Amino acid sequence: MATRVSYPVEVKKKAIEMRLDGIPVKEVMDQLNIRNKTQVETWMRWYRSGQWNRLEQPVGKQYSYGKGPEYTSELEKVQAENRFLKQQLDLPKKVRGNAKEVSPKAVVEWVESVRGEVSVTQACAWIGLSRSTYYRWKDAHENPCKDHMVVEKIRELCSQHKFRYGYRKITALLRMERKINHKRVQRIMQREGLQCRVKVKKRKPTGQPAYIAEHLLKRQFEADAPMQKLVTDITYLPFGGKTLYLSSILDLFNGEIVAYSISDKQDTGFVLDTLGQLPALPGTILHSDQGSVYTSQAYQEAVKGKGITMSMSRKGTPADNAPIESFHSTLKSETFYLEGLTCTTTAIVEQTVRNYITYYNSIRIQTKLNNQSPVHFRQLAA
């Protein structure tokens, strides 16, 4: 085991003075007969942090971290405090604050001005900034054209590919030449307006949202009399030459479809046609989802005109309208999927739906109706 060497305080102070004068570490070691360069670096670190007392501690003695330096005299303590206060007063006001408020240029310039007195870690701690952020700002400060070159390269690639690529593909192309983070590429593309322009989502309004009703039905899907509680919804019919839509209204008393419409447009007029098939029904609850066709001013006025009270599902909760959802699923399963009519003509799609609803209401028995059809069950109840 190597013998530890204890250097006099005078040697340590001399080494610090020589380093401050710009003398290389190697020359300092040769002149003062110092074995290891880390010794000189350690003394310089103590000097920068104001820990002069550590120069006098014996070899192997551990310094109590967090208790502060132990000064050998009152004068040394006052000098250290004055030095600390001077550095704090020299800190520009524009540098103080969190990382979102400070000026990167001001931070870099100030830290560089005090590096001869304190370490970067301590300087960053005073202004509440991480070392990694400081070095990132310093790199940007010393290489101002570096980010500009990246922006121009991204702009060139986006233009070359006619804005067909998003930030992931642009990052992949950049990585063929340099190392770059995909988040940086994404930020630059968003800031410069260079995002992918393929398949931009276009939404055509199908109604003007005017009124959203409370959830009055509350999943109570039983009714004591016909036309007491009704549920309605729209489903897609993508089985013909063009997509059709089915709007239907179901009576919760017996599960009968009391009104329906088929159209190639999902607009307010479509659901108004279905609603128009109902008579005036004072006190009846009609439940739907929060689709724009149901919240539109025209539909709300038509519902009130028939004396009907509107109820709507909670947003993103299709189970609140489970009976009509179940009917639409059953219709498709027992016709188009069962008979393989997934690619046919528009006329056949319409006729298939009309035939099934007639069959569903008048012939198809249901267990919950004591194995009777909806129409038969209603007739017996009357």
Rank of each mutant, 00 (worst) to 15 (best):
L85W: 15
K100W: 15
R314L: 05
Q297Y: 09
Q51G: 05
K153F: 03
M29I: 12
F377D: 05
Y65A: 08
K86D: 15
V102K: 07
T346R: 04
I234G: 10
R314Y: 11
M29N: 14
V78Q: 06
W46G: 06
I308A: 13
Y260G: 13
E192V: 01
K202F: 04
L338N: 11
V118R: 14
L129F: 01
R184V: 08
T232F: 07
L286N: 05
Q57P: 00
I16S: 03
H287Y: 01
S313P: 03
L75K: 00
D251K: 14
P323S: 02
V11Y: 09
K138T: 00
A347G: 00
V375L: 09
K61G: 03
E74V: 00
V200T: 12
G240M: 08
T309N: 13
V151Y: 05
K86F: 14
L252T: 09
R136G: 13
K12Q: 01
I127D: 05
S49M: 11
L252D: 09
L237M: 10
L32P: 06
T309R: 15
E10H: 06
L32E: 07
N181A: 03
G68T: 04
Q31C: 02
E214V: 03
M310Q: 15
K218V: 07
K332I: 02
Y360S: 07
R191Y: 00
F84Q: 12
R83C: 03
K368Y: 05
I348G: 00
N143D: 09
P323F: 02
Y211N: 07
E301N: 13
S261Q: 12
E27G: 05
Y359V: 00
K332S: 03
L216Q: 13
F327K: 10
R45Y: 07
K153G: 02
R203M: 08
A280S: 15
S326F: 02
E177H: 11
V114E: 00
I212L: 01
A140E: 14
R364T: 06
V108C: 10
I365C: 08
L174N: 01
D90M: 12
V9M: 06
N371Y: 14
I170W: 02
E325C: 11
T235G: 06
R178Q: 15
R45D: 13
E222D: 11
V111H: 03
E152F: 05
V185C: 01
I285W: 09
Y294A: 10
D90Q: 09
V293L: 04
C124T: 06
T171L: 02
K26N: 09
R131N: 13
T335R: 11
L275I: 14
Q220Y: 07
E41Y: 13
L75Q: 02
S329D: 07
L217D: 09
S6G: 07
L286C: 05
Q122C: 02
L75E: 12
S292M: 08
T345Q: 00
A302N: 11
D147R: 08
A106W: 05
Y134L: 03
E17A: 13
T345W: 00
K93G: 15
G207A: 07
V95T: 00
A319S: 13
G97N: 09
V108I: 05
